[in-house]
Simulated scan of single mutants.
Amino acid sequence: MVHRLQHQSDVASLRNGDPNFAGTLAKGMMILETFLRDPRPYANSELAQLLGLPRSTVSRLCRTLLQMGYLDRDERIDRYFIGPAAVALGYPYIVSIPLRAQARPMLQALADQVRGAASIGVAMGLDLVYVETCAYKRGTLARPDVGALRGVATTAMGRAWLYSLGDKARNAVLRQLKAERPDEMARCAAGIKESLELQARHGFAINFGDAGLGVQGVALASRLRQGTRELLFNCAVPGSQIDAKELVGRVGPRLVELVRQCERNAGIG
């Protein structure tokens, strides 16, 4: 299980349950993950308050991360922001997915057909990480870039992943979402339930706008894997240019055929 740490209490809880858990390393990573939630410059005092850590600890960790290139610092405002080493660290994972290059022409063709974006992602805890994305050549609000993080509850891709889980695992994730992201679940619970029911009939998950900006989407989990994680495919379209009937009747089946073609190309019949 992937743990997204947001406070010193999270670190203490895991360390109490596992004597081999490296608390100092976890605190350093927790600082970096702060920028995933809100990618803006932070002062030491802000990080200390947000994470429940002593300011001296934050200062020491930030200085270490700065020297290693994972953080940068703007001396004029005395604040830290994410550094280039954090970007470089993700590159080996991205390039280790050969399917990205093979699927890109099909993803681009679908994105242009629907004037939206077609993407591949993987689940990580309660979030999804986009590892490939192609957008309509004239631009679209629906485009998440490579490396973008989106919530499981709010996206068609997340709902496709939920559907792919067994009942026990799915219910465990839903309980975790309710406990850790109550606002998202209050807004998206009905949409998740509807999507799970519709996927049983149509073969793909649906999001009728819970992702925000009026964006609607369809998605499904493939039989293709990167390590232990299944690759998830998504197609998102601004709601201003498509209605629910067209999303279900036209876009969803096209995405299913794209995924099946990728599986056939990989030797999965």
Rank of each mutant, 00 (worst) to 15 (best):
M1W: 06
L5D: 11
L5Y: 05
Q6C: 03
D10Y: 03
V11F: 02
A12C: 04
P19Q: 03
T24K: 04
A26P: 02
A26I: 02
G28D: 14
M29I: 10
F35L: 03
A48Q: 05
L53Q: 02
P54R: 02
R55L: 03
V58A: 01
S59M: 09
R63M: 13
T64P: 04
L65F: 06
G69L: 14
Y70E: 09
L71C: 12
R73G: 07
I77H: 12
R79S: 15
F81Y: 15
I82A: 14
I97L: 12
I97E: 00
I97V: 13
R100K: 09
M106K: 05
M106R: 13
L110V: 09
V114M: 15
S119C: 09
I120E: 01
G121T: 07
D127R: 01
L128C: 08
V131K: 04
Y136F: 15
D145C: 11
D145Q: 13
A148I: 07
A148R: 11
T154R: 06
T155K: 00
T155N: 01
R159H: 01
W161K: 00
R170Q: 02
A172N: 08
K178A: 09
E180D: 08
P182K: 07
E194W: 05
S195D: 06
L198M: 08
F204Y: 13
F208W: 06
A211N: 07
G214N: 10
V215S: 07
G217D: 01
A219Y: 03
L220K: 02
T228H: 13
L232P: 01
F233I: 08
C235V: 11
S240W: 10
S240N: 13
S240D: 13
I242N: 03
D243R: 15
E246A: 15
V248F: 04
R250H: 09
R250A: 12
P253M: 14
V256H: 11
R260E: 14
Q261G: 07
C262A: 15
R264N: 12
A266G: 05
